[in-house]
């Protein structure tokens, strides 16, 4: 398991692995927002939590199609399928690796980008917390989407169509936490819901992803 994790991490860190691409995308999205809505700091302050959440979500989505596709092409997936390690565990590890290389940097970068969007001082802490709680769910759900489309050529667009509706609950509660946090309201209810969704997804989704992989590669 650890070998698989380190392998995935190392592959992602090497050039061409897409590490940093997500971060750059996140940065670009946040810089483009003021261009599209105008440089009104008051307006930006209001929408900042939502924009940052959406940017993080799209950045997560961006790297999903290489999550399993590369392993499918070079045959690693077939090996994993026959390996003694349960496929559910392998899928979880892949999701964890995706989170470590995409989600975690996004969480850490979000406050910096918050400055650009004039986020309220009270919002920084909750923004980081909500992203830290929510992005693992994005990775795990994304792994399921990647597993569904793994055998399909040019499945990138289809992957987005399948995964984005599944992101709705996470986005709703995550952005709600960030928004309430920024305006100094009580965040406990949406935060608990967000954590609940993330934990539930982490616990159950690998089974669906593994089942789908077995069916798809049969």
């Amino acid at each position: 398991m650890i070998a698989l994790l380190t392998r995935d991490l190392r592959l992602a860190l090497r050039a061409g692995g897409g590490f940093g691409l997500g971060l750059a995308f996140f940065l670009i999205v946040t810089t483009l927002v003021p261009f599209s809505v105008g440089p009104h700091t008051d307006l930006l302050r209001v929408i900042a939590p939502g924009i940052l959440w959406l940017g993080a979500l799209l950045a997560c989505l961006l790297s999903l199609d290489r999550l399993l596709a590369l392993d499918y092409e070079d045959g690693t997936l077939d090996l994993l399928l026959t390996a003694p390690l349960p496929l559910e565990a392998a899928v979880s590890i892949k999701a964890l690796a995706h989170w470590l290389t995409t989600g975690l940097p996004l969480v850490l970068a979000a406050p910096v980008l918050g400055v650009l969007l004039n986020l309220q001082p009270a919002g920084y802490g909750w923004l980081v917390v909500s992203l830290a709680f929510g992005t693992p769910a994005l990775s795990v759900i994304g792994t399921f989407g990647a597993a569904l489309t793994v055998g399909i050529k040019r499945g990138g667009l289809l992957l987005s169509l399948l995964v984005l509706p599944l992101y709705v609950p996470t986005l709703v509660f995550g952005a709600e936490v960030a928004r309430r946090g920024a305006s100094g309201l009580d965040v406990s209810t949406p935060l608990l819901m967000l954590a609940g969704i993330t934990l539930g997804v982490i616990a159950l989704m690998p089974f669906a992803s593994a089942a789908v992989l077995r069916m798809g590669l049969r």
Partner: peptide, 11 residues
């Protein structure tokens, strides 16, 4: 997820 979304947007 459809059911989850239903309650999420209600909230």
């Amino acid at each position: 997820f459809a059911v989850l979304s239903r309650y999420a947007v209600q909230f």
